[in-house]
């Protein structure tokens, strides 16, 4: 009888220990990654799904710093799947909307205007091409190098560079557009568009 599901070729106790190290080292980063990309209730699911994959495929997880990039790659797919599932359901409802959380967590001393700006820039990001937006997030929020972004997304470093350039440009353009729409609509409800 199999005691439990576990990665093939790894003894149970060693697997547990390896997993514990991986988990302690990277749980916070993976949770932040998911927190940045999916709505509240889905965060824990995405984190668990990512670590569950790591547990099942412990033999494949590289050692050292590469492990985090590996986990990001898994998380990228897990989150992507959540998005597609959500988008599919919403298409059925006749509504298509991104799942990216649009409500930034406010700093204790952040002004109302500052929070509005953050909300606006997050909304602007929803207009970007999916991969461009992910490049932007990985650089701005996960603080990854272009080479690491390329590794996570499985694309060439040059392509990352081009996408980042395009993403920054389009983000700013969309931001300005939303901003001008907001300022030209004085009666707009708090919270902005849509």
């Amino acid at each position: 009888m199999s005691e439990r599901m576990r990665a093939p070729g790894v003894s149970s106790s060693r697997a547990d220990s390896t997993f514990a190290q991986l988990y302690h080292r990277h749980h916070r980063q993976i949770r932040d990654y998911c927190r940045r990309r999916v709505a509240g209730d889905a965060v824990d699911d995405a984190v668990a799904e990512t670590f569950l994959t790591a547990w099942r495929r412990l033999d494949d997880v590289p050692s050292g710093d590469e492990a985090l990039l590996w986990l990001y790659r898994v998380a990228y797919r897990v989150v992507g799947h959540q998005w597609r599932t959500t988008a599919r359901r919403r298409r059925l409802d006749g509504r298509l909307r991104t799942m990216v959380p649009l409500v930034p967590v406010a700093a204790p001393d952040e002004s109302h205007a500052g929070r509005d700006e953050c909300r606006l820039v997050l909304e602007a990001a929803t207009f970007l091409n999916d991969t461009d937006a992910e490049v932007l997030r990985l650089v701005a929020w996960e603080q990854l190098s272009l080479a690491d972004v390329a590794e996570v997304l499985g694309i060439a470093p040059n392509a990352v560079k081009q996408r980042l350039h395009r993403a920054r440009r389009n983000l700013a353009r969309q931001y300005r557009k939303l901003e001008s729409r907001q300022t030209s609509t004085p009666e707009a409800p708090e919270g902005g568009a849509q």
Partner: peptide, 15 residues
């Protein structure tokens, strides 16, 4: 400036 705003808007920043 927009990029800096985007960095600041990190939903996990204070979480």
């Amino acid at each position: 400036d927009v990029m800096r705003l985007f960095e600041r808007a990190d939903p996990a920043r204070y979480d």
